[in-house]
Design a protein around this nucleic acid. Structure first.
Lengths: 236, 236
DNA sequence: TCAAAAGTGTTACAAATACACCCATGT
DNA sequence: ACATGGGTGTATTTGTAACACTTTTGA
């Protein structure tokens, strides 16, 4: 492939060029706790150590496409919610070479079918609150992403990305509790969520976690998207 | 200067390198309205057209340092509040060459002494709500930065960066009104701001905008910083 | 004396919090 | 029959929103 397919000349030829990578902070939820996807780095330096999943950005692809590429490769998922976190642009952050990275965080639901693919790539879902030492500044990226996730959850509905299509209100509550690391009052949580008016209650019950069973719900995508734009005020 | 002062070899030599720039969305406040600093681009392509102020990131400097360098050069200010907005990483965003840019927005108060320096560089403070066409995707950066600024103002106190050391409560109100493009009720605004408990009322009055004069206030930096960390809930 | 901005309080309404018991059902 | 998680209502407090008049003083 022609590495400069769309440009014939480089007006900026006198300027420096730098390696640019993107690293994905992939959060997953398995209806119990929030997990982070990490894997063993495959290139030197630090080959074999725990790392976020990332890749260099090619001259012919956008930064977003690079992240999508990585994400699809490892998880098999497409159209994943992903958002830029921050650029880590320090001169000495990578002893391998000057390399700037764009941190991007993704939210996905952990489901059985994906697990096998993840494992095939040597990746593991690791409990968010006991992450091992990662290469470079990756622990910082994770910390920053978690702050961002909490912030996001406070002004936008979250959950569409992390929960299965059908879920119970206790499921949703456990998700928020996992994000904030804090227990919420059942009655107030339920009241607030229902007041948002984005859930459709189904007839069906999920009996996997109790004998009585809990009613399943689904998101009303239209109302949900409106709420994403309008913003919420979720301070529990 | 040795362009690889801290690294002897490039482990990633097989990977692409890309031009990387940073563009600053510099918001200023002159106690009346929010302004944006733009200038006439000095390099081809699009030489002479309106543009944000930016620069290429050198192999030997961090992305943040690059932005600071530009900002100091044009405004003469150091230690300016600056925050990353987003990376614009599309393949074809710049016809000059493949170039990724990091948008960073800055908040500064517009004061007389800086004005001359700004003019010397051919830069102008332009009213935020009638920005001309800018080069590349710079209008998008401005739009995104404004969204970010509004969001930030809603969960963190803002104003330390944009207001002079001594300011009146109506000054502060005009700042928020300029950001949100919306009038607030005097009494409620004052009540809410005072309830935040970050202002120290001075004896002095500012009579520049009224015959009666308005009491000057200053921020209590400690309490202000605590509030930045704790977060506020400013939805007027 | 009057125009123009600064400053001040109260009431009504909405939202957040705290809190305790009954329900359904599989074992 | 009992243990387990699901589900419900109310009172209190807190915060937000709406609203009109008096004060000061330079021109």
């Amino acid at each position: 492939m022609n590495p400069m397919s769309t440009q014939l000349i480089d007006y900026y030829a006198a300027e420096d060029k730098i390696h640019i990578a993107t690293d994905c902070i992939i959060f997953g939820f398995d209806n119990e706790s929030i997990k982070l996807l990490i894997f063993k780095r495959r290139v030197d330096p630090f080959k074999g150590q725990w790392s976020l999943i990332g890749s260099f950005v090619k001259a012919t692809e956008s930064v977003n496409d690079a992240a999508k590429r990585v994400l699809t490769e490892i998880t098999g998922l497409e159209n994943v919610f992903m958002k830029q976190l921050k650029v880590y642009g320090g001169v000495d952050r990578d002893p391998g070479a000057r390399c700037i990275t764009v941190g991007q965080y993704a939210l996905i639901r952990i489901e059985e079918q994906d697990k096998t693919l993840v494992e095939k790539h040597g990746a593991v879902w690791h409990d968010l609150h006991e992450i091992p030492d990662l290469v470079l500044d990756h622990n910082t990226l994770v910390k920053d992403a978690l702050v961002q996730l909490k912030l996001k959850a406070s002004y936008q509905p979250i959950g569409f990305e992390l929960l299965p299509k059908k879920f119970t209100i206790p499921n949703l509550q456990r998700l928020y509790e996992a994000i904030y690391q804090k227990k919420f009052d059942d009655r107030n949580f339920r009241k607030k969520i229902i007041a948002l008016d984005v859930l459709t209650k189904l007839e069906e019950k999920d009996k996997s976690t109790s004998k009585k069973g809990a009613f399943l719900h689904k998101f009303n995508k239209e109302k949900y998207n409106k709420l994403v734009n309008r913003g919420i005020n979720f301070r529990l």
